[in-house]
């Protein structure tokens, strides 16, 4: 039942998976990727593993999965006896999926801004930042409403894989020249998230959020 993760420390998408493996207390084998400057994720050898040429990829028991969000679903589905990380009731399942897609979709503009600023990717930085701010606005508004309702997490009363999927690129915003000043509810939520047992930071996440 060995788990293997194709990983790169500076990847926020890989960090989603590392966080989840940590929260679930799962041991895993790490395959080091030379993402930058090596671009190993674009090598023919790695394309055999993921034709999309992206990390993370997780393998377990003959299963090979790409996409951080899909991997979070798999880990919660197979390894979380409590069922709380991926609630199956109708009230929470749909919303968790919705915010999970948001994490892999709109929020990835913050990843693009970071790749531009830190690793020199050529892309329209103003556009990336504008889209990232719009995504932060949506999540901040949602979390403000949750605060008013007396709740702390994106869905339900406990953290779910939606929180895990959203945290990295919100917390890493600074790496892409984006501040957290305008998003008070995001800041409160990040502080709560950091206090979860077995939370681990990654490089680029400031101590002072």
């Amino acid at each position: 039942m060995a788990i293997r993760l194709y990983d790169y420390s500076l990847s926020g998408s890989c960090y989603k998976v590392r966080l989840m493996l940590g929260f679930l207390g799962l041991e895993y084998e790490r395959v080091q990727m030379n993402f930058y400057p090596g671009r190993q994720h674009r090598s023919p050898e790695f394309r055999e593993i993921n034709p999309l040429g992206q990390i993370p990829v997780l393998e377990e028991d003959g299963l090979r999965l790409r996409d951080a969000q899909a991997i979070l679903c798999h880990l919660a589905n197979s390894h979380d006896a409590s069922g709380e990380w991926l609630p199956r009731d109708a009230e929470r399942f749909g919303p968790v999926m919705m915010w999970l897609m948001f994490a892999g979709g709109e929020l990835m503009a913050a990843s693009a801004a970071r790749l531009h600023d830190a690793l020199g990717y050529e892309l329209d930085i103003e556009e990336a930042r504008r889209k990232a701010r719009a995504a932060f606005r949506v999540l901040d508004d949602h979390l403000t409403a949750r605060e008013i309702a007396g709740a702390r997490w994106i869905v339900g009363d406990t953290p779910t894989i939606a929180d895990v999927a959203c945290f990295p690129y919100v917390a890493l915003a600074g790496d892409g020249g984006l501040g957290h000043e305008e998003y008070p509810a995001l800041r409160n939520w990040m502080r709560d998230f950091r206090r979860l047992p077995r939370f681990r930071a990654m490089s680029g996440i400031p101590e002072f959020i």
Partner: peptide
């Protein structure tokens, strides 16, 4: 260590510094 290991280690340290530097 592989070259990928060495780079990952160094970059992880440097991206911690980068937060401080830019602030």
């Amino acid at each position: 260590s592989t070259v990928g290991d060495l780079i990952d280690f160094q970059q992880s340290i440097f991206l911690q510094d980068r937060v401080i530097l830019e602030n």
